[in-house]
Design a binder for these strands. Sequence first.
DNA 1: CTGAAAGCGCTTACAG
DNA 2: CTGAAAGCGCTTACAG
Lengths: 334, 334
Amino acid sequence: MKIYTIKDIARLAGVSVTTVSRVLNRRPDVNRETREKVERVMAECHFVGNANARGLKQTDSDVVAVILRGRHNPFLTSLAEAIMHYSQGSGTSFLMEFIDEQDDEFQTALRLTHEKRVKAFIFVGSRIDDRCKVLLGMDIPMVFATAAVGHEQLARASAVTIDERAMARLAVKHLLDCGHERIAVFGASRTEGDNLSLRYQGALDAFREKGLVFDESRYVETRFSMEGAYECAREFFLRRPDTTAAFCMSDSVAMGLIRALKDLGRTVPDDVSVFGFDGTEMGQFFIPRLCTVEQPVDDIARESVRVLMDMFRNNAEPTEVVVKAELKLRESVK
Amino acid sequence: MKIYTIKDIARLAGVSVTTVSRVLNRRPDVNRETREKVERVMAECHFVGNANARGLKQTDSDVVAVILRGRHNPFLTSLAEAIMHYSQGSGTSFLMEFIDEQDDEFQTALRLTHEKRVKAFIFVGSRIDDRCKVLLGMDIPMVFATAAVGHEQLARASAVTIDERAMARLAVKHLLDCGHERIAVFGASRTEGDNLSLRYQGALDAFREKGLVFDESRYVETRFSMEGAYECAREFFLRRPDTTAAFCMSDSVAMGLIRALKDLGRTVPDDVSVFGFDGTEMGQFFIPRLCTVEQPVDDIARESVRVLMDMFRNNAEPTEVVVKAELKLRESVK
DNA sequence: CTGAAAGCGCTTACAG
DNA sequence: CTGAAAGCGCTTACAG
């Protein structure tokens, strides 16, 4: 089957390519009959415009990209979708780019800048580190949704986050208030200087406030997947069975951990209390329902779009927005 | 910051654009010193080739697209990823396109045909219906992974599936063998002529074999999400509390249903047995672990790639491959 | 309201 | 091993 180009359509409709292009782009300045004829021909041919050619030529379109790093993280996925939702009313077209966790969101941004003339970015699931230096010197507004640490090094970068440290503190405080003292913390590397280290600091804060010291030997470094958490938790609770509570830095980790405890013959929350983080849908359906720090996905999304558009349209200064998060006290803690 | 083009690089490196293009494409016929100089300049400029321009010109590349419809379905996601994994050894470059469940995978295919010169497709999460007629007459090899019904209408379409009907029959047979008789079936519309109606037929087969008749009033039409299933199941089990088992056409549905039962004060599997379908990761971590029909993701992926490449490279006839699935008997059934 | 022409950033024969 | 030139399918001033 032939691949029709705008030239073919022009020939078949008996008009110039310019006119076809106008119809394609819904320009108002086309005679109605001409438009209808062209549209008919396009429909008959199943014509699909070549986005490469368009992208190559179109140079002054205002387009914003949402780059989501980590397709598998349900919290990030729902956040990115909420951002796309709120982008509707902005009067600007947003496009969404999914990349793997191993991919580099800054390289992706650079590429989109060239290929799709993207003029602004919202990063979801980004970790701001040395890799961002490829964007240095680019006068491009960007917003980091749920990542704040280090965004200052980029000239026009804003951040929308919850107060990670304060929320982690409240979560662990709740466990302490429930009478737990031998608390484990399941997170990742503590030296990254990212959100997770803020959560770790928050956990330490809670202990400190009570005049206690967190027993470092109860810190467990885990992959952020159910399976990774399952393995780590199994090993840990065999070794340290006196632990009565765990603060997990994501809901997936919490669920993997609960399953591991169950397989060790221990019940949540009767034997061990478990706190999650993020407030994913699955956590609400899990048995027991997860006690967690709920990220206000809608608020983060709405603010991210607002802040970005304000920088983009009104040349507003970069800013740092902290939205209010909530503790969801549910079945997994006692 | 300037956006560098191949022309800029050529000027800065003191060579022609042809030579830069050669370096970019890792052609062997470039002097080592020349190559190194060009590479140095590209690195300094953070040069990123413009994929639009490349896509516009490059006309004879062999590229296969995997189109995944339904980003949210964890089974489909893992299947698409497995396909990408097996594509590595094929000697052809594969690209993956994620689209929403509401989007049209056949329109997407048509677009990719034009834009990226895609020469063959693997569809994941497709439902073959009238929409596919935009691809009619196109001499393009395609494989439907886990969808078979209706693929014959496309000239060069193959299908790789499990025997949906037989597996559903075995699942319901197992429930009947366990002594259950008042069994509910949670699925979608039964008239679509797709995989789900095959599963429904399989369920009926199991009853028929035992000389029983499925009580149609125990068929529940639900959205395929935990929340959708939760609502439907809650309503259903309030109305029909004598039901002792449920066959669910996906794991998500099963999990939503189990949560609903729990909230009604009923325990799985002690009060009600629940069978899922797909064999997702979450089902293995859920409490109770899900009894389910496991789709052999790796086998389906490997066969899909093999069948496609065979059609693509060797002009093999379209075929229909049925891979072996397995019942995973786990905690949720008694 | 319509069209001829230039050009976006690449790749690809072709010539040397 | 290297380069000049044509052209991929569009859009966009510009002219009428």
